[in-house]
Simulated assay, not measured.
Amino acid sequence: MVGEQRQATMADVAREAGVSVSTVSRALRGVPTVSPETRSCVERAARELSFVLSRSASSLVTGKTRRVAVLIPDLPRAPWFLGTALTAIAEVLREAELDLLVYVVGNKSERAAFFDRLPARRNADALMVVSFILTEEERERLDELGVPVVFASQHTADRASVYIDDAEGARKGMQHLLNLGHRRIAHMQSAVVESFAWSAHDRLTGYRQALEDAGLPYDESLVVRTENSRQGIREGVGVLLSLPHMPTAVFVETDEMAFEVLSVLRSCGIDVPGRMSVLGFDDHSLAEALDLSTVAQSAARTGRIAAELVTSILADPSGDPTRHVVLPTHLVPRGSTGPPPREGHAETAVAAQPGTRPAGSAGNADS
């Protein structure tokens, strides 16, 4: 027997059961070539010695780590979406008895270092890439890992992906504003920062398509690209408020950006939706509380289905490794959208509001 001060090893279990170390390994991993009698003997010895087969020991024999790596941008870029998706991913992997290994790339140099070193090469059985677009060179580099790669919250041709149709979702949202009577609609989009781009940028395509379908011209001055920060969004709103003819509605790329847009407009005394309607995208957990109209997607469902896709590929390597799952979006109308102001009342509506002096100079305002 093993001394109380020393942790039992596989060799100790083998001696106790009267079998080889390799037989212990096969029996504890459930390999079918081990007879029921031998497996029972090994399991009894393992229980008596309080021995548990470690993941690392198992991986030496099977070549599997029982880990799934997830590559994400840093959480501040999209804290609600990434946090919700990661929580769902972790739940599915835990149910499948798989560990979660997270790699965070926050800037251009960290991103380059990851693809140069490929640290997931020996650390995981599969890799998930969540929420940011890779270059073709980066995608080819991941192919060198030799493990399944699944993309979440983005459409990647010829590779396993779980995503929404961002353009179609945006078109639905724009149709809502058009049906309310809006004809001068702005779009606020997050700028590409540190070489990071998002599938959410495809929402601009849906915005343009809706205008075209309605027979309305695309006006580049109504598209504001801004850093996704309080100061950046405040400056973006300032650009819209400084136009010779203000828009009557703004379709914002994400709910988190829309929350700040609402705050800035109201601080300037601009009635929402009486003077300007605001439409977001995501259906963030705070959207209902803030009465924000939005195009809803499910971050939790995206994470969950992407993780289920990973586990199914690992369970059946002969299956299609490039399958796609497209998730639905739907409009959730709330109090931040309404009909545009009546003709001739738009400018007076702004002038009559107290505290509107900063509106024309909001682009230079301090946050």
Rank of each mutant, 00 (worst) to 15 (best):
E140N: 06
A124M: 07
M276C: 01
E136Q: 15
P341L: 05
R234E: 14
I89R: 06
R225L: 05
P32Y: 08
A300E: 13
T9V: 09
V162A: 04
L53H: 05
T311E: 04
C268V: 15
A45G: 00
K172L: 14
S229W: 01
P76Q: 10
P333N: 05
H245E: 14
A152F: 06
S40P: 00
R111K: 04
A365M: 13
S361W: 07
I164Y: 13
D165Q: 08
H176G: 11
V326L: 14
R323V: 14
G319L: 09
V147D: 01
V34C: 06
V326F: 10
P339K: 08
G238K: 00
P148F: 13
L262N: 01
L243A: 06
Y207N: 03
A249W: 10
Q231V: 00
D271Y: 06
T33C: 03
D125W: 03
F81C: 01
V68Y: 02
W80D: 13
A351W: 12
R234S: 11
Q353D: 12
D165Y: 12
L178G: 05
S318P: 04
D165T: 12
H182G: 02
L241N: 07
D213H: 08
I72P: 01
E168W: 13
G83A: 04
G83T: 04
D165M: 15
E227R: 12
M188W: 09
P317A: 05
N123H: 15
E194F: 06
E288D: 05
A152D: 15
H187A: 15
E343C: 02
S153C: 11
E43Q: 14
L222V: 00
R141N: 09
P148N: 02
D74L: 04
V52D: 01
G269T: 10
A113S: 12
P339I: 00
L71R: 04
Q353S: 15
K108P: 03
P73V: 02
H176M: 04
G344T: 09
V223T: 12
L265R: 03
D282P: 06
S312N: 11
P340I: 12
D291F: 12
L127V: 14
C41H: 15
R171K: 15
E308I: 06
S263G: 10
I164E: 07
I72D: 03
S367R: 15
D158R: 13
T38Y: 02
E256M: 11
Q154N: 06
Q297G: 11
L216R: 05
E4G: 14
G206S: 14
S50K: 11
P317C: 07
R67T: 12
H245V: 15
R183C: 02
R304N: 13
L204P: 03
S336Y: 07
D143W: 07
M1C: 09
M257A: 13
A249L: 13
F51R: 05
L100A: 08
A126N: 02
L60E: 03
H187W: 01
D320A: 08
A306C: 04
E256S: 03
E91Q: 13
E260S: 10
L204H: 11
D320G: 01
A124S: 01
E260T: 14
S22D: 06
T205R: 13
T248Y: 00
L127R: 01
M257T: 03
G303C: 08
G146M: 03
G280H: 04
L286Q: 14
